[in-house]
Amino acid sequence: MKNFKRFLMLGLLVLLLLAVPLSAQTRQFVLKFNHVLSPLDPYHEGFLKWAKAVEERTKGGLKIEVYHSAQLGVEEDILEQIRQGANVGQNTDAARMAMYVPEIGVMNCPYFVDSPEEVAKLKKMPTVHNWLKTLEEKYGFKVLSFTWIQGFRHFMTNKPIKKPEDLKGLRIRTPGTPVWQESIRALGATPVAIAFGDIYPALQQKAIDGVELVYNNIPGMRLYEVLKYVNETRHILLINFEVVSAKWFRSLPPTYQKILEEECDKAGLETTKVVFQKEEEVKKMIQEKGMIIVPTKDIDLEAFKKAGEKAYEVLKVKEVKDRIWKEMRKK
């Protein structure tokens, strides 16, 4: 019995050891920033630039570590971590934010905005301001910036697409969120939810007939090996959200908060420029690799816009769209 007691004591001691965090806490702030894109994507370099600028301005007090290719985990998992106050950040989109505040989904609907200039206007709008506030107060997301624009999304397939009917019966990969699925369905295709990383094998195995992505996704994923046409449907101008935890954000000194936000906006604007420059290079490169581009002028955009209206109705954001378009003086 004596033996047993001694043994129990030892066990308890070990358990106690386990429960005590062993590493010393340092006062330096670290943000682990995750994105799903490849290290070759202009965004990765953009995030590294942002990290460098923030580290310099805070004299090393706030450090950002960038993780590419979803190394830190699945996007949806990271978002939930952010809600719980972790020092992680994520590059995400309106469709995912719409899972929390449904109205935001409007930003991810077909033909909602036509240019980066219109996106810049968005941030000043009272409606948008309210969304950000709800995200922060109710769900714990701090949106640092949405000046990061990834370019226009186009359908990429193995046959030319000129009008919505051409998409009929085609299985097009989309992210799994309802907003994406409904938008793509409205435009005439059959959405198939597949993770970003599985796109290449799915195309290779013909589990899907095409994708809808931006030009800059093509080289990193070697899509020219498995797809023939880029149809410039410009159906969504992809606005990205850089989000961190509101709780973590509040724990930063106010000067750091300001620097983090400012530099994020700044890096976003620069990266957007790079993105559009790079698209031109990519266009040249993929044509050399044998892809065919169906330019916007050959596409019945009006028909696509009309078809896209359905997404607003299904997602019940038509009224929101009308309101914002009115505020923007857009028809």
Binding site: L18, A19, S23, Q81, Q84, A86, N87
Partner: peptide
């Protein structure tokens, strides 16, 4: 995770 309290314990 016990050593890293900054990561949510639900991870």
């Amino acid at each position: 995770f016990l050593q890293h309290p900054e990561i949510p314990i639900t991870t």
